[in-house]
Simulated assay, not measured.
Amino acid sequence: MGYYLSLISFGPSGWGGAFLDGALITISLAVATLPFGLALGLGIALMQRSEKKWVRRIATIYTTIFRGVPELLTLYIIYFGLSLGAQRLAKSLGFSGQFDMPPFLAGMIALGLVLSSFSSEVWVGALSAIPKGQREAAAALGLHRGQAFRLVVFPQLMRVALPGLGNNWMVLLKETSLVSVITLPDIMFYATRANVVTKEPFLMFGVACLIYLVFSMASAIGFGFLEARANRGYISHGTAR
């Protein structure tokens, strides 16, 4: 038992510090990706509800692509494809040198695109749940469309969308493990390295599993609190007290 504890300790021969660093990278990537993916998803949802057919078609094509293509393939395309594209563009403009896409940025973009495609469905459902009379009442008060959305629609939208967005966050948290393949030192990156060095796969991947479980349980508690706070003042059929 002492041997196994020494392997995951924070001492010079333990991997505890590496796992801590990986956990910080994982949670940082997820937190950085969340607002980008949700904001883009909301924009796609608004496009899906547009009165213009061609705008709705673009949104449908977008969601079909990023919901249908494996997340790992999207990550590879962003990481390698954008690097190659930037190099060729620079060369055509007369610049020399090599451009390497930062792994953190590549992971954020790729996971954000995937998150936006799935969260857009949550946003569409939430937008459909907001009564049309809310917008009409806002217009009657003299609010323009932007003000009506920000002051009247969006607060109600968040209350309805929170459960679905919480699920999206859980999925995003797990999908961050994919970035280890592009050398971003996250939890899985260090777990894999530790396994290669120590030849203790059950221990090292078990530690990674526990870290993800802690993140998931903390997230469930956090979103539960947010949902309870967002629903204060509402009864079961959704009307205000």
Score class of each variant (00 low, 15 high):
residue 2 G to D: 13
residue 2 G to S: 11
residue 3 Y to N: 14
residue 4 Y to R: 07
residue 5 L to R: 00
residue 5 L to K: 02
residue 6 S to Y: 07
residue 7 L to V: 07
residue 8 I to Y: 01
residue 12 P to C: 02
residue 13 S to D: 10
residue 16 G to W: 01
residue 18 A to I: 04
residue 19 F to P: 02
residue 20 L to P: 08
residue 21 D to H: 07
residue 23 A to T: 04
residue 23 A to E: 02
residue 24 L to N: 08
residue 25 I to V: 12
residue 27 I to R: 14
residue 32 A to E: 13
residue 34 L to E: 03
residue 36 F to W: 06
residue 36 F to K: 06
residue 36 F to R: 02
residue 37 G to Q: 00
residue 37 G to D: 09
residue 43 G to P: 03
residue 43 G to M: 14
residue 44 I to G: 02
residue 45 A to M: 00
residue 46 L to F: 02
residue 47 M to T: 10
residue 47 M to D: 04
residue 48 Q to G: 10
residue 50 S to I: 00
residue 55 V to H: 06
residue 58 I to K: 05
residue 58 I to L: 14
residue 59 A to K: 09
residue 62 Y to N: 02
residue 64 T to G: 15
residue 67 R to C: 03
residue 69 V to S: 06
residue 70 P to R: 01
residue 71 E to W: 06
residue 72 L to S: 00
residue 72 L to A: 04
residue 72 L to M: 11
residue 72 L to C: 07
residue 77 I to A: 11
residue 77 I to N: 07
residue 78 I to W: 05
residue 79 Y to P: 00
residue 81 G to E: 11
residue 83 S to V: 03
residue 85 G to W: 14
residue 88 R to M: 13
residue 88 R to I: 06
residue 88 R to T: 04
residue 95 F to P: 01
residue 96 S to Q: 10
residue 96 S to M: 05
residue 97 G to Y: 15
residue 97 G to S: 13
residue 102 P to G: 06
residue 102 P to F: 08
residue 108 M to R: 01
residue 108 M to F: 09
residue 108 M to N: 04
residue 117 S to C: 06
residue 122 V to Y: 03
residue 123 W to M: 04
residue 123 W to C: 09
residue 124 V to F: 05
residue 128 S to C: 12
residue 128 S to M: 14
residue 129 A to D: 12
residue 130 I to Y: 08
residue 130 I to Q: 12
residue 131 P to Y: 05
residue 133 G to D: 14
residue 134 Q to L: 04
residue 135 R to H: 14
residue 136 E to G: 03
residue 140 A to P: 14
residue 140 A to K: 05
residue 141 L to K: 12
residue 142 G to R: 13
residue 145 R to I: 11
residue 145 R to W: 08
residue 146 G to H: 14
residue 147 Q to D: 02
residue 154 F to G: 00
residue 158 M to K: 04
residue 160 V to E: 09
residue 161 A to C: 09
residue 163 P to Q: 08
residue 165 L to I: 12
residue 165 L to S: 01
residue 168 N to S: 15
residue 170 M to T: 14
residue 170 M to G: 13
residue 171 V to A: 14
residue 171 V to L: 15
residue 171 V to P: 15
residue 171 V to E: 15
residue 171 V to T: 15
residue 172 L to F: 13
residue 175 E to A: 08
residue 176 T to P: 00
residue 177 S to W: 09
residue 180 S to N: 12
residue 181 V to Y: 05
residue 183 T to I: 08
residue 184 L to H: 00
residue 184 L to Y: 11
residue 185 P to N: 01
residue 185 P to F: 05
residue 186 D to N: 05
residue 187 I to Q: 03
residue 190 Y to D: 12
residue 191 A to E: 06
residue 192 T to Q: 14
residue 195 N to G: 07
residue 196 V to P: 01
residue 201 P to L: 13
residue 201 P to V: 09
residue 204 M to A: 05
residue 205 F to E: 11
residue 206 G to K: 07
residue 207 V to L: 09
residue 208 A to M: 15
residue 209 C to K: 09
residue 209 C to G: 12
residue 210 L to K: 13
residue 212 Y to I: 02
residue 216 S to P: 03
residue 220 A to Q: 10
residue 220 A to R: 12
residue 224 G to H: 10
residue 224 G to N: 07
residue 226 L to N: 06
residue 227 E to L: 04
residue 228 A to Y: 05
residue 228 A to M: 11
residue 229 R to C: 04
residue 230 A to C: 08
residue 230 A to T: 12
residue 233 G to D: 01
residue 234 Y to K: 04
residue 238 G to D: 08
residue 241 R to W: 03
residue 241 R to I: 02
